[in-house]
């Protein structure tokens, strides 16, 4: 297990370093960043001044190593617009995004696991078809459009929930539904497939044969085994949700990291954007690592591969 752990951790580190290089190069090489920072109507002299002030005139590799070296010590640079350290900006907003992500995941799991189990118990029944349709329709719905419709119906017409800004728990409900809905099809399908497989296994027949009640067989024996792959999928989905929070947070004006990314893009504050890309990637990589280790811990066969 220790060997496997070290191997996976080394891989995760390698991925993190590669992501940092690629995202750095993408932002520096896809256009003249000094022009983008200077904004419209800047003179040649302004652009040149910015180039020197931020060190954009130096070779890319020097810029990368300086940035990455600082990042290792927890310094992601200064925000051009806010004039405060990027780490501070992200740190202030991380709880909002994490809370939103967690709530969205709870919503997704609470919706998809019961539906997946019900669908697996009666394949091709009405409930199976209904859950399939929820998945198919959900995948086709543009996330920003779904969020606006929620806002219109639940916020304006029914007046159930506040439509924007941060505040109490109620400000998180609609964004969490809008964000979590996109994880439901995948979790539901995996639960259904896992349940169908487990229900056909010998130990379930044994459990029935020795006279256990249906509820006990289903929840204690079947679901617990079927849900194992779902846990690691959920961890990865959480990583995806952090990326999707850009759209949802900017719609609901929820002051999290995604919202920060969006306003920073509009202000050409690329040090902040760069820091957020790195942060979100690292969180995703960690989630994937945890999911892998969790699986290996549960299923020793994986450790050998």
């Amino acid at each position: 297990m220790l060997g496997f752990l070290l191997k996976r951790a080394a891989l995760a580190l390698a991925v993190a370093v590669t992501v940092s290089i690629i995202s750095f190069l993408l932002l520096r090489a896809s256009g003249d960043i000094a022009v983008a920072v200077a904004g419209e109507g800047a003179t040649e002299a302004d652009i040149e001044a910015i180039r020197i002030q931020f060190g954009f005139d130096r070779p890319l590799i020097v810029q990368y190593f300086e940035w990455a070296g600082n990042a290792l010590t927890g310094d992601l640079g200064q925000s051009v617009y806010f004039r405060v350290p990027v780490v501070e900006l992200i740190g202030e907003r991380m709880p909002v995004t994490m809370g939103l992500g967690a709530l969205a995941l709870v919503f997704a799991v609470a919706l998809s696991i019961p539906l997946g189990v019900a669908a697996a118990l009666r394949p091709n029944s009405i409930i199976d078809r209904l859950s399939l349709w929820i998945a198919v329709l959900g995948q086709a719905m543009p996330s920003f459009w779904f969020a606006l419709l929620l806002m219109l119906v639940m916020g304006v017409w029914w007046r159930w929930l506040p439509i924007s800004g941060a505040g109490g728990f109620d400000h998180y409900i609609m964004p969490a539904i809008a964000l979590g809905y996109y994880a439901t099809p995948a979790i539901m399908r995996l639960t259904r497939a896992g349940m169908i497989e487990v229900l056909e296994s010998d130990y379930i027949r044994t459990a029935h044969a020795k006279g256990l009640g249906t509820g006990k067989v289903l929840f204690k024996h079947a679901l617990r085994n079927a849900v194992i792959p779902v846990v690691s999928l959920a961890a990865v989905q959480f990583g995806f949700m952090l990326s999707g929070s850009i759209v949802i947070e900017s719609i609901f004006a929820l002051p999290g990291v995604g919202h920060l990314a969006w306003i920073s893009l509009q202000r050409s504050d690329f040090t902040v954007v760069q820091g957020i890309v790195l942060m979100l990637s690292v969180i995703y990589i960690l989630m994937a690592l945890v999911a892998d280790l969790f699986n290996a811990w549960l299923d020793p066969r994986i450790r050998v591969a």
Partner: peptide, 22 residues
């Protein structure tokens, strides 16, 4: 490895950032 790396990048944010610079 390349696919894993690509999956680790927040796709919407990276796309937005590249479009903003380019």
């Amino acid at each position: 490895f390349v696919v894993t790396t690509r999956l680790s990048m927040p796709v919407i944010l990276v796309a937005l950032a590249v479009v903003a610079v380019a």
